[in-house]
Amino acid sequence: MKEVAERLRSLRESVKLSQVKMAEVVGVKQSSLNRYELNQASPTFETLMRYVDYFDVSLDYLFGRTDNPQGKLFEYRPKIEQSDPEMEKFVEMCFDPKSPMNERLKETLVKMLEEAKQ
């Protein structure tokens, strides 16, 4: 379980969350989270699932079976309906220069690209 403890801590630190905040996210006490990260206790399956959902990683990654956060068998396939009217409206708005959201979308994308470079 040493690998799990290290991965839990590494994931938390990667997003600069304190143990207190991370404990709130996964629904445990800070003292429990501290013991998990020090390999003094084992988190429940539910707690592990909250971690993998929050960080969008696989259990294989969390257990050290792979260094690929998506795991060995992970294959991302977004669940977007082709005929979803809300999605079509959103996409149209993204590419319509007359849209009131156009400038805000551009700024958001630029910011995301800058953050990805860091």
Rank of each mutant, 00 (worst) to 15 (best):
A5Q: 02
E103P: 04
N68F: 02
Q19F: 09
V110R: 13
C94D: 05
F90N: 04
M93E: 15
N39S: 15
L109D: 03
R77F: 07
F55T: 04
A23F: 09
E75D: 12
D96M: 00
V4G: 03
K72F: 03
M101V: 13
N39V: 02
S83I: 02
Q40V: 04
E6L: 09
D53A: 13
L33N: 03
Q82F: 11
P78T: 02
T108N: 14
R7G: 04
A116F: 13
V4P: 01
E24Q: 10
R77D: 13
S42H: 09
Q40N: 05
V26Q: 00
R12G: 00
A116D: 14
P69C: 08
F74R: 14
D56A: 12
G71N: 12
Y51K: 00
E115R: 07
M1Y: 05
C94N: 08
K111Y: 10
R12E: 05
F90P: 00
M22A: 14
M49D: 08
R50E: 11
M101P: 05
K89M: 07
E37N: 08
M1V: 03
E37A: 07
M1H: 09
R35C: 05
D53E: 13
M49T: 07
K16S: 14
E103I: 02
V26N: 02
F63W: 04
K79Y: 06
R35M: 09
A5E: 00
L48R: 07
